[in-house]
Write a protein that binds this DNA or RNA. Structure first.
Length: 447
RNA sequence: UCCUCAGUAGCUCAAUGGCAGAGCAUCCGGCUGUUAACCGGAGGGUUGUAGGUUCGAGUCCUACCUGAGGAGCCA
């Protein structure tokens, strides 16, 4: 038997195709588009890292290769051999002079790829999300999401935080609301978690500085561009930290994430038409206003006719209120010390005014609303027990949580950031459904 | 749960109560530098569902279904 000694060209990726300028490489990917002009074909290939146009003059390839490419259907998988050539006309700077194509799997002619290059409506796109994710804008968003998560973990890892994963199946409501997904747990009632916070308070008492990163679930019947029923949160929790400490942590955290995306995913930001200069501004420190001052600003807004209803002290900020407040700043604004009444049961009262809670919401600019909520947690056993009773929570379910105060409780604080809202803001997206590979919303659990 | 809007070809959308249409996609043909290529041609329809008004309903009325984004609630 004869052995072939022909050396194979190297396998290249489109994102780093410039390294192979002038060389013959193999690209393994899919046909993104095909334009033709008589005896000249322009197949556009994608490989997950980018897109490159191939050039196929009929005179330069075998008739079989020419016919194969000419008859290719969009999104057919192909292994392409070609010579990389720098070209000023190419959007990416390089073109591929194709010499050979091997078709791995051809998309059927009578059942073409449903996502065309033209516009589609949101319902159609979501129904085909498994295919929609292949398109350039969606891959750019998913790479930015990855960078945000990478930067977030990197931020905590470098500061000595330990990743501790809280459970996803929980015996009771974390925050005592009725927005949980019930699960049958061996004939016992259980729920999908709505926050890992209570559990990382426990690991913070073990390890000092901890964080969690995982999915959370809300059965809330919200259908807006800001809501998913399943979303990811990153939550740090720090023993001996007070409100001011985590406010500083939060602003440095957000700065780090945004600047990482600006530095490492500039092309992807361009692909989603993001105004990068707005992101370059996002550097700590961030403006801080008290709830009291926020109320004052909202009432002024109403007087000027920019807000429909007059905001009264004591309520929680609504979505239009957040948009109005954040529009007054060019970076995220931190609103702190809300009335304890409108916040969760576990928040430490402000010693200066026990009606207020030592908490902070970080509102993203450009109307993206709350991306971080955080607080100092109650340290005193008796006060915590009192709050649990006031909120009508099942005391037995919180026995372990109370133990954290009984056995060496300390002041501690933390916050949670919703990944999808951060991605939506950083990418400048209309809707959070594009920020996660497979969004779960009130009306959709397929695909 | 409430409010508002929408549903017509595979997709995006037109159509004064009077013949069901266009662009894109698909197929056939043309073009050696195209950039969501372009030019010519072809096929493609139970107008969301059920009822009602009318000589006649995609269009008007009622109910329902589905979706959208806003409120509330939240990240």
């Amino acid at each position: 038997m004869e052995t072939t000694t022909t050396t194979q060209p190297p396998i290249g990726t489109i994102a780093k195709i410039g390294q192979h300028d002038g060389q013959t490489v193999i690209i393994r990917g899919w046909l993104y588009n095909l334009r033709e002009s008589g005896k000249l074909l322009f197949p556009i290939f994608r490989d997950g890292t980018g897109v490159i146009q191939g050039v196929v003059p009929k005179s330069q390839v075998t008739p079989e290769t020419f016919e194969t490419i000419k008859n290719l259907t969009l999104e057919s998988s192909v292994v392409v051999t070609g010579k990389v050539r720098a070209d000023k006309r190419a959007p990416g700077g390089y073109e591929l002079d194709v010499s050979d194509v091997r078709v791995v799997e051809k998309v059927p002619v009578d059942d073409p790829f449903p996502i065309s290059l033209k516009e589609h409506g949101p319902d159609f796109l979501m129904e085909h999300r498994h295919l929609w994710v292949r398109t350039p804008r969606q891959t750019a968003i998913l790479r930015i999401r990855h960078e945000i998560i990478r930067a977030a973990r990197n931020f905590f890892d470098e500061r000595g935080f330990v990743l501790t994963d809280p459970p996803i199946l929980t015996p009771a409501a974390c925050e005592g609301t009725s927005t949980l997904f019930p699960v049958n747990y061996f004939e016992e009632q259980a729920y999908l978690t709505q926050s890992g916070q209570l559990y990382i308070e426990a690991t913070a008492m073990a390890l000092g500085k901890v964080y969690s990163f995982g999915p959370t679930f809300r059965a809330e019947k919200s259908k807006t561009r800001r809501h998913l029923t399943e979303f990811w949160m990153v939550e740090p929790e720090v023993a001996y930290a007070q409100l001011d400490d985590i406010m500083e942590l939060a602003e440095n955290f957000i700065s780090h994430i945004v600047q990482s995306v600006v530095a490492n995913r500039r092309d992807d930001l361009k692909a989603v038409d993001r105004d990068v200069t707005k992101l370059e501004n996002i550097k700590a420190p961030f403006p801080r206003i008290t709830y009291d001052e926020a109320v004052k600003r909202l009432q002024e807004g109403h007087q000027k006719g920019q807000l429909e209803t007059r905001f009264e002290w004591g309520g929680d900020l609504g979505s239009p209120d957040e948009t109005y407040l954040s529009s007054q700043f060019d970076r995220p604004v931190m609103v702190h010390r809300y009335p304890a009444k409108v916040k969760a049961f576990y928040m430490e009262p402000d010693p200066g005014n026990p009606e207020l809670a030592l908490c902070v919401d970080v509102l993203a600019p450009e109307g993206y609303g709350e991306i971080i909520g955080g607080s100092q947690r109650i340290g005193d056993y008796d006060l915590l027990l009192q709050r649990i009773r006031e909120h009508g929570l099942p005391e037995e379910a919180f026995k372990w949580y109370l133990d954290l105060r009984k056995y060496g409780g300390v002041p501690h604080a933390g916050f949670g950031m919703g990944i999808e809202r951060a991605v939506a803001w950083i990418c400048g997206l209309e809707h959070v459904r594009e920020t996660i590979p497979f969004a779960r919303t009130l009306t959709r659990i397929y695909p």
